[in-house]
Amino acid sequence: MTGHTARQCSSWILLSLLAISLAQMSGCAGKSTKARYSASSIGSSCYAKALPTAGEGGLAWGDTLSMARKKSLDNCMRYAGRSGGTPDTCQVVLAECKH
């Protein structure tokens, strides 16, 4: 009878630990989602996209249009070089600011 009670107690403890860990994980998931949305609304309002003739391009955000254009060109050159493309042919194809 003592062995049967010990097994019941240990399974109850394991179930409790599982429930606690699941509750903590769901609480953390809710907090990170909320933080992500609030952080994205604070960001820069201008963006630019630069593309090479071959390879991957770059998209970047900046506080000003010129900053976004410069960052996107830098990203384009980096990504085009990594993807076997042509970094010297990067050009900004889209640049605008949200209002």
Results as ranks from 00 to 15, higher is better:
Arg69Thr: 13
Ala39Leu: 11
Leu51Met: 14
Leu51Asn: 11
Ala48Ser: 14
Ala54Lys: 15
Ser32Phe: 06
Leu65Arg: 05
Cys76Trp: 00
Tyr47Ser: 09
Gly30Ile: 05
Thr89Arg: 00
Ser45Leu: 13
Arg69Ala: 10
Tyr37His: 12
Trp61Gln: 03
Thr53Asp: 13
Met67Trp: 00
Asp88Pro: 00
Ile42Pro: 00
Tyr79Trp: 08
Thr86Ala: 14
Ser66Gln: 11
Thr86Ser: 14
Gly85Cys: 04
Ser44Thr: 09
Thr53Val: 12
Ser26Ala: 15
Arg36Lys: 12
Met67Asp: 15
Gly62Thr: 04
Gly30Phe: 03
Gly85Asn: 02
Met77Phe: 00
Thr64Ser: 15
Cys28Arg: 13
Leu59Val: 10
Gly55Lys: 03
Tyr37Cys: 03
Gly62Ala: 05
Ala60Glu: 00
Ser40His: 15
Arg78Ser: 13
Leu51Ser: 14
Gly85Ala: 04
Asp88Leu: 06
Cys46Lys: 11
Ser32Met: 01
Glu56Ala: 07
Pro87Glu: 04
Gly84Ile: 02
Pro87Cys: 07
Lys70Asn: 12
Gly81Thr: 07
Asp63Ser: 08
Ser38Asp: 04
Lys70Pro: 05
Gly43Thr: 14
Arg69Gly: 02
Gly43Met: 06
Tyr79Ser: 11
Ser66Cys: 00
Pro87Val: 10
Glu56Ser: 09
Gly55Val: 01
Trp61His: 08
Gly81Ala: 10
Leu73Val: 04
Ser41Tyr: 10
Ser26Cys: 13
Ala39Tyr: 12
Tyr79Asn: 14
Ala50Thr: 10
Ile42His: 14
Arg82Pro: 05
Arg82Ala: 13
Thr86Trp: 05
Lys31Glu: 11
Arg36Cys: 10
Thr86Ile: 07
Met25Asn: 05
Gly30Trp: 08
Tyr47Ala: 08
Arg82Cys: 03
Thr33Gln: 09
Met25Tyr: 08
Leu73Gln: 03
Ala80Thr: 01
Gly30Arg: 07
Gly62Asp: 08
Pro52Lys: 10
Ala54Asp: 01
Leu73Thr: 01
Gly57Ala: 03
Ser72Asp: 14
Met67Phe: 06
Gly84His: 08
Arg82Gln: 12
Cys46Ile: 14
Asp63Thr: 11
Thr53Cys: 04
Lys34Ile: 00
Arg69His: 02
Ser72Asn: 11
Arg69Lys: 15
Leu51Tyr: 02
Lys34Ser: 09
Ser66Arg: 01
Glu56Thr: 12
Arg69Asp: 05
Leu59Gly: 02
Lys70Phe: 11
Ser38His: 04
Ala29Arg: 05
Met25Thr: 12
